[in-house]
């Protein structure tokens, strides 16, 4: 057996000419918590769907737990667990029934089934709610149940597609703790997709940044941040003369953003006074100046020239989400 839980070989998928995933080659080690970070539409979910055999690649292939996703789809399925981005529970059944059904689909015998179901329910602290209908669950409880379900058949690899999308901050924190605990206690490889920088930063051993279907950078969060180099100085200004800041290029990289300027520099502390002088000399009114260490946001900006916006949801997606929300509340 190889040391990798996942290896992709020029994995590609196009939808009528649109390249959703473009010749991706990544290797994910066993036991690793790997994050695929990118904006909506970057190709994260498409890639996940291919790895879990729901979608056939247009070209290339991948190995999951040593099994080929095209020729050995059934072996791949047995060895993985998935928590989809959209809820995929039957809300007319109880939590326990959902888990039972899942266990039976994976061919787990009756006694073993009961033992494991109780075990995973305990892990996500849903023992007391297990016999209530899922439609009475909150969003966070549903997500926890889905994580539990993804674990019932003891997969070697667990895929989490945007595990905290649409959850409130407290619940997110809670889910993060479960994921951390999973990693600590079980020898399981976790692949998680997210467009939340803080989530990737906090949880992942390594991160692959994906944009327009390509992996544009890969490494530990710190490695990635070090690539940006030094410090980030953020200058907020509404001045029309904002372009004059381009003259500061000698200090480092200068970027104009919606509400000011971003500078990537070394020894930022020593440059702030110079910036203030420069602004005063050029009569640019500055609202604020701040200095910080680079975040993954800056990493993304560094590689793509764009910022990941969290509300990057198009009209159709919004409609669909509203509809789903309504259906979940009503009926």
């Amino acid at each position: 057996m190889s040391e990798f839980a996942i290896e992709t070989f020029d994995l590609t998928r196009n939808f009528n000419g649109f390249l959703a995933v473009d010749h991706v080659n990544i290797k994910i080690k066993k036991g690793e918590l790997f994050g695929l970070l990118g904006p909506n539409g970057a190709g994260k979910t498409t890639m996940l769907n291919m790895l879990c055999t729901l979608l056939k690649p247009s070209a290339g292939t991948a190995k999951v737990n040593g099994f080929d996703i095209i020729d050995q789809a059934s072996d791949v399925r047995k060895s993985i667990g998935i928590v989809f981005q959209d809820p995929s529970l039957d809300d007319r059944l109880t939590g326990r029934e959902n888990l039972e059904m899942h266990a039976m689909l994976y061919g787990i015998g009756k006694e073993e089934r009961e033992r494991r179901i109780n075990e995973v329910l305990k892990l996500v602290e849903l023992e007391e709610k297990a016999d209530l209908l899922v439609r009475t669950y909150s969003g966070g409880m549903k997500r926890r149940l889905e994580i539990a379900r993804g674990l019932v058949h003891y997969p070697n690899v667990l895929f989490l597609d945007e595990p905290t999308l649409g959850l409130d901050p407290q619940t997110r924190e809670h889910i993060w703790e479960y994921i951390e605990e999973l990693k600590k206690k079980h020898a399981i490889t976790i692949i998680l997709t997210t467009h939340y920088m803080d989530e990737a930063d906090r949880l992942c051993d390594r991160i692959g940044i994906i944009d327009h279907g390509k992996i544009i950078a890969i490494g530990t969060p710190n490695e990635l941040k070090n690539k940006v180099g030094g410090d980030v100085i953020v200058i907020e200004t509404k001045s029309k003369n904002v372009n004059k800041f381009e003259k500061l290029k000698f200090m480092g990289e200068v970027r104009i953003t919606n509400n000011g300027i971003l500078l990537n520099v070394k020894n930022g502390e020593r440059l702030i006074t110079k910036i203030v002088d420069f602004a005063r000399k050029n009569r640019i009114k500055v609202d604020s100046i701040s200095l910080r260490k680079p975040s993954l946001n800056d990493v993304f900006l560094h590689y793509t020239g764009r910022v990941i916006r969290e509300e990057e949801v198009d009209g159709k997606e919004l409609m669909r989400q509203r509809f789903l929300m309504r259906m979940r509340r009503g009926t």
């Binding site: 879990c52 055999t53 729901l54 059934s74 072996d75 399925r77 047995k78 998935i82 989809f84 995929s88 529970l89 899942h102 689909l105 994976y106 061919g107 379900r149």
Partner: peptide, 8 residues
């Protein structure tokens, strides 16, 4: 349906 389709 996804949950069922992804089962072995």
């Amino acid at each position: 349906l996804k949950e069922i389709l992804v089962a072995p």
